[in-house]
């Protein structure tokens, strides 16, 4: 009763009518369509493929084949763990290298901030694979670095870096460093410098001000950077293939082989789903550990 009167008492709302009420939904429709076509559909097809049986020649049929998952985990748990370890190490290396860079550009870059950012992004102007192959040449047993050091007698003649875990982690960190620098920079650059001054004013030296104020306030940037490096580095197979050799295979390489070489689509899909699930669980655990307030709310304040 009261609602009807209220609606009648608001004449401004009436002419809008049905189309007016639909307008907001129509406006978000392109976004939903985009998500449906490019996110929901591929995931659904991967998940359904992971539960099929058959072969490329005979065709695949949906049989709810959970054995794909037992095989995926049973055969490739080692590669999955290795991928997470390499990805994690590369991400830590990215933080260690990227945070100081972002900090320096944001607080001491002065008028040349954009130039420094461009320098950080410059490697992206060369193809990902080409860059990695170049590192293969640079780090080769008789390449520029090792060759020279061997000639100088600094390293023994049989020393090598390639085909080792450190080479892969280094390559991953190198390739994804900008993804760590940019989000951290974005947060630091927006930070009100007076907050840092306030810390100094309240008896905090440089180290204290950084540890108590700058670092906690920049955690959302680090969080974004971790997501943007940990996920792609864990799933990467280029670096492991080119710099890692046969003993350091990552799960990305396994998926590629199962899919493109063995044409075992269901198994490849099952490994993919496992990898995604593990990464998602990891991200959620990380967000919980940091506290959603830290991750989401600091910027609002």
């Amino acid at each position: 009763m009261a609602a009807t009167t209220a609606a009648e008492a608001a004449p401004g709302r009436r002419p809008a009518g049905r189309r007016g009420r639909l307008a907001p939904y129509l406006l978000v429709l392109p976004g939903w369509l985009w998500l449906a076509v490019f996110f929901v559909a591929p995931i659904a097809s991967v998940v359904s493929m992971s539960l099929m049986t058959g072969s490329l020649t005979a065709g695949f049929t949906f049989t709810f084949e959970t054995a794909n998952y037992t095989r995926a985990l049973g055969l490739y748990w080692e590669q999955i763990l290795r991928s997470l370890a390499y990805g994690g190490l590369a991400t830590l290396l990215c933080i260690a290298l990227g945070y100081p860079v972002a900090y320096w550009i944001a607080f001491h870059g002065g008028a040349y901030k954009s130039t420094y950012l461009l320098l950080v992004l410059l490697p992206f102007f060369v193809s990902f694979v080409l860059r990695t192959v170049s590192w293969g040449f640079i780090l080769a047993d008789n390449g520029i670095v090792l060759g020279t050091l061997k000639d100088l007698g600094v390293l023994p003649g049989d020393a090598g870096v390639l085909n080792s875990a450190p080479a892969v982690v280094f390559g991953l960190a190198y390739n994804f460093l900008p993804f760590m620098v940019l989000p951290i920079y974005a947060v630091l650059e927006r930070m009100d410098h007076r907050v840092v001054e306030a810390a100094h004013d309240l008896y905090a030296g440089r180290l204290q001000a950084f540890a108590r104020v700058v670092l906690p306030m920049s955690l959302p940037g680090v969080f974004a950077g971790v997501i943007m490096t940990f996920i792609p580095t864990s799933a990467d197979y280029v670096n492991a293939t080119i710099l890692g050799g046969t003993h350091n295979t990552m799960v990305g390489k396994v998926i590629e082989t199962q899919y493109l070489v063995n044409n075992a689509y269901p198994l490849a899909a099952a490994i993919t789903v496992v990898l995604m699930a593990v990464l998602l669980a990891g991200i959620f655990a990380y967000a919980r550990a940091l506290g959603t307030e830290q991750v989401m709310e600091v910027q609002a304040g």
Partner: peptide
């Protein structure tokens, strides 16, 4: 000496 800043500069976190 301590300062009260124009924008308050409180620690949001």
């Amino acid at each position: 000496v301590n300062m009260v800043f124009q924008s308050y500069a409180l620690f949001p976190h």
